[in-house]
């Protein structure tokens, strides 16, 4: 019982922390962010299991977390609002060639990151970027002037 409650608390605390961290923690994970994810994950594991390190307890914790994840996924599929809260919405960084500074600041995204994404799309100059969209998964989609 305790394990299920601790796993539930741990899951939602972790979800909140990861959500309020910069979105790019998802797909463009740097070594620095790997350290963060593993450290937070390790700390949550300690709190979830408590002093009971038995196979039974670990199995219950894993099943509880998996079930919670399934439940949140189901809730996301049923409600776009929950999807937006959990995953966020795509957001335009460059619109019609104009950089949206408030979005860059709000999302903690640097221009260099967008230009790097543009290079991956074969775009050599930032002046060629017509639209750049920060996707839910942290990836940046770049479109050029047609």
């Amino acid at each position: 019982m305790d394990t299920i409650l601790r796993a539930t608390a741990g899951y939602f605390i972790l979800l909140l922390v990861v959500r309020v961290l910069a979105r790019r923690a998802g797909s463009q994970m740097t070594l620095f962010e790997f350290v963060l994810v593993f450290l937070i994950g390790g700390v949550i594991i300690l709190a979830t299991l408590g002093p009971d390190r038995s196979v039974t307890n670990c199995t219950c914790a894993v099943i509880a977390v998996a079930s919670l994840h399934r439940f949140v996924s189901w809730a996301k599929s049923r409600s776009p609002r929950i999807g937006a809260i959990v995953d966020g919405t795509p957001i335009v960084i460059v619109q019609g060639g104009e950089w949206r500074e408030d979005v860059l600041k709000g999302m903690g995204v640097r221009r260099e990151g967008v230009v790097a994404a543009a290079r991956m799309h074969g775009i050599g100059s930032s002046s060629d970027i017509q639209y750049a969209v920060l996707e839910r998964n942290g990836g940046i989609t770049v479109m050029t002037r047609s």
């Binding site: 776009p80 937006a84 966020g88 919405t89 795509p90 957001i91």
Partner: peptide, 26 residues
């Protein structure tokens, strides 16, 4: 963002279907 992902997805400049919601984001 409550709109399903289809043609009704809000477009930026009537050009790119993104589904952005800046109010929600703010």
């Amino acid at each position: 963002f409550l709109n399903p992902v289809e043609d009704s997805v809000p477009k930026v400049d009537d050009e790119i279907a993104v589904g952005e919601d800046l109010d929600f984001q703010r």
